[in-house]
């Protein structure tokens, strides 16, 4: 049963042109790293560049963009197109549908972000692969948290992608960098704290890793519960509605 849900979700996500675009976004990170290497920069500065590339571009842009598109598509596009009825008209507990969709989306997002981040980090700064590993590892955590939030969002509003993009730009991008007090609710800051913890020094984050992990857990579980709650009560109307 879960296998069937996973198969349908995976094929629904991978069958689209947009997945190719998301791959290109990841390739872009690696490309920037490659150009930096080709420009033959002094190795001493490589650490700073790698941190900026993986932190600002990787965790700051790539992860939320990929997660918002995959996360809102997994359930949201089935709802919009109406194919969700073929999952809902079955005696399947709704939490199973949410968990299957969430884990597949997480997996897809992870592949699309962690691999480019790892490769880009190693290409930009081969002397210290630990930094690349730390950022890749933290991107896995961020992928789960973002995906859970965006999946719940897709069950709350039919304009989840727009709202999600606005959230990424305004909350994660502007508010959390201006107002220190809001950082505890910033997924990007959670991820940076995890990266610092994994790397042990080279990365500097604003939050303590313990706080960040606990907050990430609360947000993920909360969003997943919200998604289950909403899916149990989702209403299907006819074509015109």
């Amino acid at each position: 049963m879960t296998v069937t849900l996973i198969e349908i979700t995976l094929r629904g996500l991978l069958n689209r042109r947009r997945t190719l675009l998301l791959v290109l976004l990841g390739v872009l990170v690696v490309l920037v790293a490659g150009l930096y290497r080709l420009a033959d920069q002094p190795q001493a500065e490589a650490a700073g560049f790698t941190g900026a590339l993986l932190g600002n571009f990787g965790l700051g842009v790539l992860v939320p963009l990929v997660a918002v598109i995959v996360g809102t598509a997994a359930l949201g596009s089935e709802l919009e197109e109406g194919t969700i009825v073929y999952l809902l008209a079955r005696p399947v507990p709704r939490w199973r549908i949410v968990l299957a969709k969430l884990s597949v989306s997480w997996l897809v997002v992870t592949v699309l972000v962690a691999v480019p981040i790892l490769v880009a980090g190693i290409v930009a700064h081969p002397g210290d692969p630990g930094v690349a590993l730390a950022y890749a590892g933290s991107s896995v955590v961020a992928a789960l948290e973002y995906t859970a939030v965006f999946m719940a969002l897709s069950l709350v509003t039919s304009r989840a992608l727009i709202v999600g993009l606005a959230y990424v730009v305004i909350w994660e991008g502007v508010v959390a960098s201006l107002f220190a007090g809001t950082r505890i609710f910033s997924i990007r800051q959670h991820a940076l704290a995890v990266a610092e913890w994994l790397d042990g020094g080279a990365v500097t984050a604003e939050l303590a890793p313990g706080v960040a992990l606990v907050m990430a857990g609360i947000v993920t579980v909360g969003a997943t519960l919200l998604a289950v709650h909403r899916l149990e009560r989702v209403e299907l109307r006819g074509e015109t509605a």
Partner: peptide, 15 residues
């Protein structure tokens, strides 16, 4: 949801 064991539903939408 357990009722769907006893119901078959064919929606109008083509998707």
């Amino acid at each position: 949801p357990e009722i769907y064991g006893r119901i078959g539903f064919v929606p109008e939408r083509e998707a």
